[in-house]
Computed example of a mutant assay.
Amino acid sequence: MPDKVDLKRTLDAYAAKRGEVRLLDVPPTRYLMVDGHGDPNASPAFAQAIEALYPVAYKAKFASKKELGRDYVVMPLEGLWTADDPASFTTRRDKSAWDWTLMVMTPDWVDDALVESAIAAAGAKDAPARLDDVRLETLAEGRCVQTLHVGSFDDEGPVLARIHDEFIPANGLRMTGRHHEIYLSDFRKVAPERLRTILRQPVEPA
């Protein structure tokens, strides 16, 4: 039996500590993705995106193990977030204004053909509503700032303000790209005060 690889334990991009903001370089990474807009708590499309991503992610994992002899732990849900006004994330928290892309990281040895087969297998019976929206794409973020937030998503504002308004300008940087969250906890099962979320912001020299 092949050893099962847990990439979130081996990749530096998934390392973060509470209270520590750090700079890192994130290599180009492949993800299964689905796009959407609006309040994640109120939009059916948000739940439907998750329901489409994970069947494909698991079909790809099983195919990798069977066909390639390479087994791995399916990675946690991640999200890219944007809004016309950055204050929608910090002081105003206007979730209705958010655009989002939900993602599951896919190992680089899982190629396009295997993912296409995984999508077809996920749709063979009781296909998820948004299965046709699932795509495989490479995200190149480069230099980033990140930290670990522990607690409710609604309590992220002060942490993001510290990153956006203090750390980034103090280091001669400016924001570029989309706000990125990595959900180390399953928010459907874990109490809000115990949620562990990596907060990441791509940056470039100011």
Score class of each variant (00 low, 15 high):
E141T: 09
L139C: 09
A120T: 11
K125G: 02
R143W: 12
D126T: 04
A140P: 08
A129R: 14
T138G: 07
A127W: 11
R143H: 13
A121Q: 08
A118E: 04
R130C: 12
K125H: 13
E141C: 07
G123H: 13
E141A: 09
A140F: 07
C144T: 14
E137F: 09
D133T: 07
G123E: 08
A121W: 02
D126L: 07
R130F: 13
A129W: 14
L131F: 09
G142N: 04
L114Q: 09
A118H: 02
L136F: 05
D133G: 08
E141L: 14
P128L: 00
D132R: 11
E137G: 08
E141N: 08
A127L: 07
T138D: 12
A122L: 06
R135F: 00
I119T: 04
P128H: 04
V115P: 00
L136Y: 02
P128S: 02
A120C: 07
A118P: 09
A118Y: 00
A120R: 09
G123N: 10
A140K: 09
A129L: 14
K125D: 10
K125S: 12
T138Y: 02
E137D: 12
E137S: 11
A127V: 05
S117M: 07
A124L: 07
D133Q: 14
V115F: 03
L139W: 06
A122C: 06
R130L: 15
L114K: 05
D132P: 00
A127K: 09
I119A: 05
L131H: 06
A129I: 13
A127D: 03
S117T: 11
D126R: 12
L139V: 15
R143C: 09
E141P: 10
L136S: 02
D133P: 10
A120K: 10
R135M: 01
E137M: 14
R143Q: 14
A122W: 06
A121M: 03
A140S: 15
C144K: 12
V115D: 04
A122T: 03
L114M: 15
A129D: 15
C144H: 13
E137C: 07
V134A: 03
G123K: 09
I119E: 07
R130G: 11
P128E: 00
A120Y: 05
K125Y: 10
